[in-house]
Amino acid sequence: MTPGVFEYHRPNKVEDVLALLAEFGDDGKVLAGGHSLVPMMKLRLAEPAHIIDINAIASLRGIREEEGMIVIGAATTQAEIMGSDLLNEKCRILPDAAALIADPQVRNCGTIGGNCANGDPGNDDPAIMLALNASYTLQNQAGQRQIAAREFYEAVYTTALAEDELLTEIHVPAPAKGTGMSYQKIKRKVGDYAIAAAAVTLSMSAGQCTDAAVALTNVGDTALLSLEAAEAIKGSAVDARAIDRAADAAMADCEPVEDMRGTVEYRTAMVGEMTRRAIAEALSRVAGS
């Protein structure tokens, strides 16, 4: 690990982070879990002049519920997500997905905020946030704003996060009773990004799907929300034919590239298969709840 020269900062308060971000602009990079940034620095693909380590800031960690909203601190680790009783009870797709992220060492450091804010289409949490219709709290010295995850992602490593802003919280609407959810991911091995993955939430009432969302990981420039796939199951009994239509829609919406994980044809097919499996599992969880 031979990164370029950088100065290391470890502030204790959010305000201090914001002051440093305001001062350094593009030369400053926030270090949370470091599992995206540090490998890039190792390869010198990133050579930030200033590293702003936020791990000393307790207020950025923790999971709570307030007014129908689950609020997750941005520096909450994936291991903490997996261990959260609140999430396992009310929003299990997040702990389920965390368990599919890399290995325990990575999950002990890697944070949900970093996963969401980094803008890497290979990260797992953005698609889930799209499906859950979560929003992000972004702060700078001037104040804070709330932005929907569905408005946040622009392109590879490009998001609505400004240079002087810090993602501090993630707000997830607490899923209503009768909501089932599932994240299905196919990868080559531990530590790999998805060949394709699908996040599905759906609500059933009297045997009919009243609401649904389908989002996809690592098969486009950003995580993708497939409105068509959701439409295919909404209003249906979520039978095999509806599931097939949703899978076809997700396949039509995705834009994977060929890489070491497979051809476009294969990765597209896996979008369909993961969508199918996620819908089926989400449905089974509605029945179980």
Binding site: I186, R188, I195, R261, G262, T263, E265, Y266, A269
Partner: peptide
């Protein structure tokens, strides 16, 4: 025998 290559055989044979 990656998933992608095995799938190619499955796909060519129509087994998927």
């Amino acid at each position: 025998h990656t998933q992608a290559k095995v799938w190619q055989t499955l796909n060519e044979l129509g087994l998927n």
